[in-house]
Design a binder for these strands. Structure first.
Length: 860
RNA sequence: GCCCGGGUGGCGAAAUCGGUAGACGCAGCGGACUUAAAAUCCGCCGGUGGGAAACCGCCAUGCCGGUUCGAUUCCGGCUCCGGGCACCA
């Protein structure tokens, strides 16, 4: 036995034992309850960051806890290996994305192993392998056959200098990241998946997910965005032809207040009007500049220009001017909106800016309407009544919508409609490092799907992107192919798939990663659904929604039977660290917190911070997510090397509950290390006493220790079940404190019992340390198969309890009573209490509230 | 701009159903051990007023208001911070 705690030795020994016994292999065992514990797979960016350590420690704690509880647990790991950073690295270093990616995977796998996660590495997968992505291609072709995948144009960010499509991330303040050129919107052909067909189910099925956080379900519901309204038409005549300008509105009750219509810059009406109107043509061009990001669109200055054209109001017959608005998007509905400046905040501002009429058509009693400024209630639809609306005057929101929809319907100018905010999923990317879209372009036959027997379409792994577009375009060996239909020379599609495709079904493939003949097999129904999914809150919408959609498509294709992929979801908070900087001229220079020393006053309150190197002050701009740009990252590798994996894991679990953000603290890490060392030293010092004891005969002197240990165990069990691991970690500290206090008074049997509980409570968090101590103290040969300890209810029993005394809700003392004392006896004791009497001060007692087991409140 | 979440001591946090606010830890202060340092151990540790002390009072969970015998917890409004916004993953 080592007297000193040496994490490196302990962890090597434990990991070798697990490796040798195959402790983490998951084998389908019908009849045994299964638990599929999945953490979001990492993007192989180079090395693990603290967010990974946190994510995978949470998963590992759940995995090991459920094994203790008798579940057959699967915890797999893989690599979300396609993506933009590999291309950026290629541009920077000239290394092919494939090599960069595979090197990163090898390094990060080593790191994951050093953290001791109970992963079944035999199921490892990487999405950049043809064995994996061939099934992306295969399923895409099935979707194409079913009409779920289809082709249409989409808008992308276009860098006019580099002549390439930019990702949103590559657009900074409306300009290309490398060229600085103003980005343009450009329409190109793309492939889309009809996720909108699944919108109703994606929305209603949220109710079947009690294990998901409410806030995530709420975000998804808002994202899907069901809204009921009226699709209505403004008729107009263009070059002698009768046409309809269609708009959707949720406020048909305000139709009588329409004073203009606005169309997107790309709308045919705008194009027509701009033909002989150079200023308008210039404005339309201006609208096409800037990024396609919604946040940019929503915050940009609302601008418009009159087209000079008019449409006819469908009910009043009035002429309504048509404007081009930079805030109207062609992709939503039909690219046109009706303007009701009296009751829509955006329209109000637009009308004020351009001098358009503003008409009040609803009112809320007692609230004056004024054109001076926007008031929240103008848009109210809960207590409003129509005014200035002719026959609709006096109707409330719903009655007005019904009546107006009916009148529009009678004229053929509209009907009620349910619409969704959700848009179809565009999966085409004009990039190299992704799954090739399995299509062939033939001059004679058009877009021809690659036949199944020619899958996978293998991505060449030796390309090096240079920023000038997709390098596949310069690869004749990839491009040139015979048309599968007519046999004539044709061209392969060079677009690849969105990497969200890869991550939309990887959790299914872990069940059968070795199956070369089919995408899924009968091992999938054994493991699915995922019982616990763990990942960053930043994935609350897109990845999770796409995965749900993909699952439903595969179900409808008869490939799987589950409706939802993830039964329970835990969204972990981000890992933050302080940001230190100095202004050097115009730019900010950031310093890593490890190089900064905090100055405090004699109460420990911070008074400043200096750079260790030169002793000069640095400024802080608060805390933020660990990032390269802010130089506030902490490398997990250094942490593991200095303190060991168990300390890293313990610190991560102890410092914050899983769903909250976690703030880095060097001294917090040292505190965690100190605690684990105390556990080790305690076990060594006591091993002679408790290592050999058999039996569970306790003495009267053991009652205090046993009550404390079992009370804490009960709480820790509850906390483990609700995944509040920070208090599980502190439970370990409390048990150790109790054990140390009891040395000398409690019997060896009680100390042994408490130590066994301590090791098993800590095991899911710090498996290495507890694995070694468990066998050294003779509890058993292998803690990985030990059960979670049971609470001994008898140890919790008390004959007397303490009740808090309050007068008017303020704490005024306490009394000790027998645990089965009657209400009358308690009231009597409380009223007799001198301190209570002092504060009652002779006033008449109005009532006495007795909360059993807790308190007595005397109200005067 | 829109959607979602959060704010409790010097710091990370705890408080399970509305019932003793601050468990556990970090930092700090005081002490023991030591030639010394490190490590370890013991004690104190929200603010404020009174008191020599024991102790007693008042204030305090971002801000303002409400419900309640009683609010960190429930409701309304505000404010600041964080996440997402469809081509970062």
């Amino acid at each position: 036995m080592e007297a000193q705690y040496r994490p490196a030795d302990v962890e090597r020994s434990a990991q070798q034992a697990w490796e040798a016994s195959g402790a983490h292999r998951a084998v389908e065992t019908p009849g045994k309850p299964k638990y599929y514990c999945l953490s979001m797979f990492p993007y192989p960016s180079g090395k693990l960051h603290m967010g990974h350590v946190r994510n995978y420690t949470i998963g590992d704690v759940l995995t090991r806890f459920h094994r203790m509880r008798g579940y057959n647990v699967l915890q797999p790991m893989g690599w979300d290996a396609f993506g933009l950073p590999a291309e950026n690295a290629a541009m920077a270093n000239g290394v092919p994305p494939a090599k960069w990616t595979y090197d990163n995977i090898a390094y990060m796998k080593k790191q994951l192993k050093s953290l001791g996660f109970a992963l079944d590495w035999e199921r490892e997968l990487a999405t950049c392998r043809p064995e994996y992505y061939r099934w992306n291609q295969w399923l895409f072709l099935r979707m194409l056959e079913k009409g779920i995948a289809y082709r249409k144009t989409g808008v992308v960010n276009w860098d006019p200098v580099d002549q390439t499509v930019l990702a949103n991330e590559q657009v900074i303040d409306g300009r290309g990241w490398r060229t600085g050129a103003v980005v343009e919107k450009r329409e190109i052909p793309m492939y889309y998946l009809r996720i909108t067909d699944y919108a109703p189910e994606l929305l209603t099925a949220l109710d079947s997910l009690p294990g998901w956080p409410e806030r995530v379900k709420l975000m998804q519901a808002n994202w899907i965005g069901r809204s009921e309204g009226v699709n209505l038409a403004f008729p107009y005549t263009l070059e002698g032809e009768s046409k309809l300008l269609r708009v959707f509105t949720t406020r048909a009750d305000t139709l009588m207040g329409v004073t203009f219509a606005a169309v997107a810059a790309e709308h045919p009406l705008a194009t027509f009007a701009a033909r002989n109107n150079p200023p308008l043509a210039a404005f339309v061009e201006e609208c096409k500049q800037g990024s396609v990001m919604e946040a940019d669109m929503a915050t940009l200055d609302k601008k418009g220009m009159d087209t000079g054209l008019t449409v006819t109001h469908p009910l009043t017959g009035a002429e309504i001017p048509v404007w081009v608005g930079n805030y109207v998007l062609m992709g939503y509905g039909e690219g046109a909106v009706m303007g009701v400046p009296g009751h829509d905040e955006r329209d109000f501002a637009f009308a004020k800016k351009y001098g358009l009429p503003i008409v009040q058509v609803t009112e809320v009693p007692g609230k004056p309407f004024s054109l001076d400024g926007w008031q929240e209630w103008y848009a109210d639809k809960t207590s409003c009544r129509c005014v200035n609306s002719g026959k609709y005057d006096g109707l409330d929101y719903q009655a007005a919508v019904d009546a107006i929809a009916a009148d529009l319907g009678a004229k053929g100018y509209g009907e009620k409609q349910t619409t969704w905010r959700l848009r179809d999923w565009g999966i085409s990317r004009q990039r190299y490092w992704g799954t090739p879209i399995p299509l062939i372009h033939c001059d004679a036959c058009g877009d021809v799907p690659v036949p199944d027997d020619q899958l996978p379409v293998v991505l060449p792994e030796d390309c090096v992107p240079d920023g000038s577009g997709n390098p596949l375009r310069n690869r004749p060996d990839f491009l040139d192919v015979d048309c599968p239909k007519c046999g004539q020379p044709a061209r392969r599609e060079t677009d690849t798939m969105d990497t969200f495709v890869d991550s939309s079904w990887y959790y299914l493939r872990y069940a059968c990663p070795d199956n070369a003949a089919s995408m899924v097999d009968d091992r999938v129904p054994y493991w699915m659904p995922v019982d616990q999914y763990i990942g960053g809150i930043e994935h609350a919408i897109l990845h999770l929604l796409y995965s749900r959609f993909w699952t439903k498509v595969m179900r409808d294709l008869g490939l799987i039977t589950v409706d939802e992929p993830f039964a329970n979801l835990l969204t972990q908070g981000m890992v933050l660290n302080e940001i230190f900087f100095r202004k050097e001229g115009a730019r900010l220079v950031y310093f890593n917190p490890a190089d900064v020393e905090i100055r405090t006053d004699d109460k420990g309150a911070r008074i400043g911070a200096v750079l260790k190197r030169d002793g000069q002050p640095v400024e802080t701009s608060g805390i933020g997510t660990m990032s390269k740009s802010k130089n506030n990252g902490v490398d997990p590798q250094a942490l593991i090397e200095q303190y060991g994996a168990d300390t890293a894991r313990f610190f991560m679990m102890f410092t914050s509950p899983p769903e909250q953000t976690l703030e880095w603290s060097d001294s917090g890490v040292e505190g965690s290390y100190r605690f684990l060392r105390r556990v080790w030293v305690f076990a060594q010092e006591q091993s002679a006493t408790i290592g050999a004891v058999a039996g569970t005969t306790f003495t009267a002197a053991d009652a205090t220790l046993r009550r404390e240990v079992h009370t804490v165990l009960k709480q820790a069990t509850y906390d483990m079940e609700r995944k509040q691991f920070n208090t599980v970690a502190s439970a370990g500290m409390k048990i150790l404190n109790a054990l140390q206090d009891a040395v000398g008074t409690a019997s060896a049997a009680a100390l042994r019992e408490g130590t066994g509980i301590l090791l098993r409570v800590l095991y899911p968090v710090t498996p290495h340390l507890t694995h070694v101590l468990w066998s050294e103290l003779g509890f058993g040969s292998d803690i990985t198969v030990a059960p979670w300890p049971d609470v001994d209810a008898a140890a919790l029993d008390r004959s007397e309890i303490e009740l808090v005394l309050q007068v008017n809700g303020k704490l005024r003392g306490s009394i000790t009573v027998a645990k089965d004392a009657t209400r009358e006896a308690i009231e009597h004791l409380a009223l007799e209490n001198p301190n209570v009497q002092k504060f009652v001060d002779g006033q008449p007692v109005k009532k006495v509230v007795v909360v059993p087991g807790r308190l007595v409140n005397v109200v005067v």
